[in-house]
Design a protein around this nucleic acid. Sequence first.
DNA 1: TCAACATATAACGATATGGCTATATAGTCA
DNA 2: TGACTATATAGCCATATCGTTATATGTTGA
Lengths: 124, 124
Amino acid sequence: MNRKARSGNGKVETLQPEALELVAARFRILAEPLRLRILQQLHEGEKNVSELTAILQTTQPNVSKHLRLLQDAGFVGRRQTGNTVYCFIADSSVFDLCNLVCTGLEARLASHAELLRSPGRRGR
Amino acid sequence: MNRKARSGNGKVETLQPEALELVAARFRILAEPLRLRILQQLHEGEKNVSELTAILQTTQPNVSKHLRLLQDAGFVGRRQTGNTVYCFIADSSVFDLCNLVCTGLEARLASHAELLRSPGRRGR
DNA sequence: TCAACATATAACGATATGGCTATATAGTCA
DNA sequence: TGACTATATAGCCATATCGTTATATGTTGA
């Protein structure tokens, strides 16, 4: 064991800057509303590109592009039958991530709401 | 209870598109290497802007700008004494998030490595 | 009040990214 | 093979964001 972080012990606190780039890139995948909506749709069950396009009210190339990123990151998988491509959640831990963010967001918004309500009487 | 998601039950699977924008925005805060490096530094203990600037090898305005985003998101707090501003982690759950991403990333990279090693003999 | 220091903001250029339209690729069926 | 359908890619424009330099704000101490 030397001073540099080794594989398997990925505590973000100890990562090198280059590794943090990878972590940031992974966050960036989830930093787009449309991609989150795609994940949300796939949470209900697998869907093909045309279905997603219709549901999300955007263009087919746009869906394809976003799907590619989600697939490259390993969040989404694909299954092709004939010439239609069915997409599905390949790593459901992505929802743990999203829900952690949701929780933090709720806490944040609640604390803001608190500030607007009865200043000086926090917590009741 | 009506058909729209209500406060407190923030399962990402059920959020409206507008709510997903907020979730995406929160992910976006963590989608920058320099911001992750700031968080990393603050994990060791509070630091002021000048110290961060020196450590991160960038300009002071750049650090200030990123700190602002981290503060607005509630991840980082500030304490001002005299004219120096000390920053610290205000929501340490941000590291849970980062570590979840790290874990997923490691798994992803490991599975890629697997593909390069002995094709056909996966899992051993 | 003035000089000095620490931090914040403004304004800019460079780059990245989202969404579009047009087109290419690839699979199915006749 | 050729028409049709589903998806992917290319190319483009608009916008957002990073990092920089210049400057403003604000705090301390003489």
